[in-house]
Design a protein around this nucleic acid. Sequence first.
DNA 1: TAAATAATTAGGCGAATATCTAATTAATAT
DNA 2: ATATTAATTAGATATTCGCCTAATTATTTA
Lengths: 95, 95
Amino acid sequence: METAFKAINDVTRREILQFLIQGPQNAGQIAKQFDMTKPSISHHLDLLKQAQLIDAVKKGQFIHYSLNKKGFESIHQWFQGFAQHFEFPKPKIRL
Amino acid sequence: METAFKAINDVTRREILQFLIQGPQNAGQIAKQFDMTKPSISHHLDLLKQAQLIDAVKKGQFIHYSLNKKGFESIHQWFQGFAQHFEFPKPKIRL
DNA sequence: TAAATAATTAGGCGAATATCTAATTAATAT
DNA sequence: ATATTAATTAGATATTCGCCTAATTATTTA
């Protein structure tokens, strides 16, 4: 849980997560979205992976990254402790 | 929003929030809960206040701190963007 | 008004973080 | 086999963060 909070405490990493909402992307495709070197992005991906916010699957010379439910769950769980004290606006459409 | 993520990226600050679930507490009462000097706690309270995760009300020489819905909402909102891609377990009791 | 209490502000220091360049590993293609 | 491409690992550096002690501000009480 510690690692998840750490991971989302960075704009770039949050933007990577945001980007992955559209679906899995390899490291190069992700790096292209940002004005930052590939090694830096690689490091961010590593932290996100450690936090289980993303998954990595190697396909040949590419590595496909995608969102991982697990990390989000741990954040969600923490959040629920407070949700009971506040009432939050529900999204228009509940899937 | 940036400030909210920053604020919750620290164990002590998260524990302060947790402690405030039981109700408003003044700075001294909060500081007593932690093995840390008052100035350090004061700094943490300042960051939580900036993130609008807590409110501060001065009553005489005391300052009463309490949870503030606003900061939690901004985190919640960010989270909703991902909640639509994952299905999260709902709490047993919905208030 | 002087002493005590509650809390913050200021300044300093070591540890952690984000970024870069250079080097390395691994897979594909010529 | 060699060159190319995708990506990571390693090492260096500047900045941010969390904590401390000392000093300051503000309020209450004797």
